[in-house]
Simulated scan of single mutants.
Amino acid sequence: MKEFVVYTALRIALFLGSLALVFGVWWAVAGEVPVLWAVVIAFVLSGLGSLWLLNGPREAFALRVQERAARASQAFEEMKSKEDVD
């Protein structure tokens, strides 16, 4: 659960940082900012940035999910074999 919270928090922070950057640059250049376009551009930039910047936390989260799925699968197989014995 910790990995999920860390990755999600970093992803939100990256989006908000991208939004502030896009909003600031657009305001400095044009003097007015269409908010919808700023959000769309920030979303794309944060998505691309997360591919490189958040690789470590994403891998940790994926490993945690894989371990949990393996434990669940093992527990299911144990229950299944227990039913076969009965």
Rank of each mutant, 00 (worst) to 15 (best):
F61Y: 12
M1V: 12
V65Y: 09
L36Q: 04
Q74L: 11
L48C: 10
S46M: 04
L36R: 05
A70P: 01
S46H: 04
V33T: 10
P57Y: 02
V44F: 08
L48N: 03
L16V: 14
E67W: 06
G56K: 13
E59F: 01
W26Y: 03
F43D: 02
G31M: 03
V5S: 06
K2M: 06
I41M: 08
S46Q: 07
V6K: 15
E3K: 02
Q66F: 09
L10F: 05
A42F: 08
V22T: 03
L14E: 13
M79F: 07
A75M: 08
P57T: 02
M79E: 11
E32T: 15
G24D: 06
G31E: 04
V39T: 09
A28L: 15
E83G: 02
P57V: 03
V29W: 06
Q66L: 13
A20M: 11
V44D: 03
L21C: 04
K80S: 06
W37N: 09
G47Q: 02
V65S: 13
S18R: 01
A9V: 14
G24H: 05
A72N: 12
E59R: 13
A62S: 12
E78W: 07
F23H: 10
E77R: 12
G49M: 04
W27T: 08
R68E: 14
Y7R: 11
D86E: 10
V39P: 02
K80I: 05
L45I: 15
G31K: 02
E78Y: 05
A30N: 11
Q74R: 08
A9Y: 10
E3A: 12
G49I: 06
K82P: 00
L63W: 00
A62E: 14
Y7V: 08
A13Y: 00
F61C: 04
G17K: 15
A42M: 06
P34F: 02
R58P: 00
L48P: 01
R11A: 07
A69K: 12
V85T: 15
A72V: 08
Q66D: 13
W27M: 13
W52E: 06
Q74D: 07
G49L: 07
M1C: 07
D84C: 11
L10R: 10
L19Y: 14
V22M: 02
R68Y: 12
T8Q: 13
F76D: 09
A9I: 11
F76S: 07
G24V: 14
L45F: 14
E77K: 10
F15M: 01
S50F: 00
K82S: 06
T8C: 11
R71D: 01
A70D: 13
E3Y: 03
T8Y: 11
G56M: 08
E78C: 05
G56R: 13
F43C: 04
L53G: 03
F15A: 01
V40Q: 05
Y7C: 04
K82D: 06
V40L: 15
